[in-house]
Structure formats: C-alpha cells, structure tokens
Amino acid sequence: MTASSSHIVVIGSGLAGYGVLRELRKLAPDARLTLVTQDDGHFYSKPALSTALAKGKVADTLITTPAEKMTAQLKLDLRAGRLVEAIDREDKAVLTTGGPIFYDKLVLALGADPVRPPIDGDAVHLAMAVNNLDDYRTFREKLPDGARVLIMGGGLVGTEFANDLSATGYQPVVVDMLSHPLAQLVPPGVGNMIRDALAAKGVEWHLGRKVVALRKIDGGIRAELDNGVTIDAPAVLSAVGLRPHVALARDAGLEVSHGIRVDQTGRTSDPDIYAIGDCAEYPQGLAAYVTPIMSAARAIAPSALGTPTEIRFPPLSVQVKTTAYPVVLLPAPFGVDGEWKEEANDEKGLKYLFRDADGIVRGYVFTRDYCQERMDMDRTLSEQMMGTAA
C-alpha cells in the first residue's frame, strides 16, 4: 500500500488535528483523510478564548475558517458531531456514535479536559470551564454585563481571563491556593507585579486560599473559602487546570502516563497510532501551546505516511496575554535543579533567568519592555540546544 492510497483518520478538530491534516495534505495530495470530531469542525484559535471579550468577539466571530471551507481546502471526509466511543486496534476501526470508521493510520488529537476539583455544595455543576468554542458561547450567554465573576485558579488561563474581564468592565475575583499568580511558571517577584497591575484594574485576589463549597443563592452562586470568607457572584469560571485526555487511549490498551506516551516521531505504543497536542506525552514531557503542536505536526505527518521523522521542538516560550502587565516566558524544565535569579528590575520591567546546576540558562521571564528580547533569547537557546544535541 502506498502512502497516497492509505486512509488516515484524525480524531479532534482543534489546532493539533487540523495542523497535522494540513501537513498530511501538503505531503500526500491524494491520500484519503478523515476527520472525526464531536464538535462542528469549525477552525478557530483556542488561545483567543481568553482575550475575546476585550476584542469584542462573540463565539461565532471567533471562527476563522468554517468547517465547510476547511473540508474543501483539505479535501477531507468530515464526520462532525460524532462521539468516539472506542478504538478497536485489532480491526483498526474507530467506533463512533455514527458507526465504525476503519483506518490504516490513526492520529489522536484529543486535547485535554478541565480539572474538576472536589468542592461541596449544590452549585458545583454551575461552575463553567471554557475549553472550546461551545464553552465560550455558554459563558458569554450566562454573563450579565459588568458582573462580578469568580475565577477559581490563578494560573495562565485564570490570569488571562481576569485581565480580559477587567478590561471590559467586569469585576473578576480570583481565588488560588498558591501565593502569587502564575506561581508554577514565574518567580514571586514577577507574580507579585502581575497581581498588583491587575488589582489596579479592579481584579480582587484571594491568594493562598481555596474554594471549599459553591452554593446556589438568589441571583447567582455563593463561594465559601477555606478561611470562612464568602464571595457572591452571578458566574463562576473554573480555571484550575487541564488534564490530558487519555481515557480513550487507555481503554484501547495504549501506554499512558500523564498523557498518551509517544516516541520522538509522535508514535504511540501501537505503530499505527500517533498522538499530538495536549493529549500527548512526548519523551520531553507534556508540551501544550501552539509552537510544539506545529512542530509535532510537521514530523507526525511524514511519519504517518511512512517516513519516520523526529519531532524537533524549538524553545517553547509563551506570551502571557495580560495587557495590564505584558509577560513572555520560557518555563523552567520540569524536574531540573536550578534557581531563578533577577537580572534586571528597572523602569523597563523585570528580567529573570533560570539557571540549572551547571549555570546554563534553561528558562526566562521578561516583562514589559524586556519582552522585546524574546526572539533573541529564543534564538540563543535554540542554538545552545542544537549544540548540545550535536
């Protein structure tokens, strides 16, 4: 069987799914490509969800390319509105609510699911997580103008939503167990500046605290914190984190850990199945965000077509979408011994570098004017990585 005659099925219509489909179509103009999604298949930027309010966007205007156009451009067989119930590896079939779909190669682009923390009360189910376009549509519909909004979680998504809501006349109240915003990504000096900048825009912070109960009240929800404080709000946004979607892969007998385990080509423990994006656990670990998805897509497409190609990740730096206090960062590698050191603290902003035990720079955080140094730093670190690999 030639690559052009094989049938490749992709599950998931996010950036990862469409990213690998684009690369497949470039390499194999005649290959049979099928996209299975429980959504409608429209293409949109998921990172744009946390900045949509300030840009005056509603769910429909966030769609950059309608499903019909994506289908035509990529010559896809789109199976929208289909829930995948199981993967039959023996018969090489995806079992969906619309019937089985047989494959030669399968790509899992399943994304991640919102973490639901254990909380008491009769309003827990009313806490909204915004993880896709439909979630955002529901969130906007249930959000009264200028309302107080309780945000559970002060990580990347929670902080970006606090920035977006405060910039558009809402009153965000952020509760987080850690001592400062973005605590798992930035040192306290940076987190405190983000906190203060957003507080000046009207964001109320309850740090070092957690929500223990959500109860229904007239006009909304009452949150009870672990110190006895109560917060009343008509809407609650849950942004306590995401967990890679591994259930489908685990049930199919694929090797999973934090995510679906893949090798350096994106291949799972089944040689005919690949995984990409938020659901995948690469040899380097989990790698969410846009940059690693596009890098992985460029390698997984030729690999699935019969030419094993290694994924080469550039420095995976991130722009935090906080207009009140601009930040770019490269997170410190997980499990690497080292420390953050302040390199600059002046009218231009803050600059921190993370050095490992050998004194090698492995991460950075730049704020305000120092954000302009991101590209140069990424280039330097990329050259350093290539030198190490050589």
Rank of each mutant, 00 (worst) to 15 (best):
V94R: 01
Y325T: 01
Q73Y: 07
P47I: 05
D369W: 01
R140A: 08
L95P: 02
D226E: 09
P114Y: 01
A3S: 13
A31Y: 03
V290S: 11
A167W: 06
Q319Y: 09
I311L: 05
V173G: 01
L108C: 02
G111E: 01
H206I: 07
A200P: 07
V212Y: 08
L76C: 00
L242M: 14
V20R: 08
D358V: 04
A344T: 05
I311V: 08
G359P: 09
I63D: 03
K341I: 04
M177I: 15
Y170N: 13
P188C: 08
S50M: 05
L329P: 02
I276Y: 00
L126W: 06
D378P: 05
R362N: 07
V10C: 13
S238E: 12
L110D: 00
E339M: 07
R261S: 09
D77S: 14
K321H: 11
I273F: 00
L108P: 01
Y274Q: 06
I63H: 04
Q38M: 11
L143P: 09
A235Q: 15
V107C: 08
E68S: 15
T71C: 13
T96R: 02
G12Y: 03
A389H: 08
Y325A: 05
N227T: 09
Q184Y: 12
V211H: 10
E342H: 08
V365R: 00
P114A: 00
A86T: 06
I194E: 08
G19R: 04
M70Q: 10
R250W: 06
V94T: 05
L237G: 12
M377A: 08
I273Q: 01
L15G: 06
R374M: 15
V212W: 09
S179L: 15
N132I: 04
W340P: 04
Y289Q: 11
R195P: 02
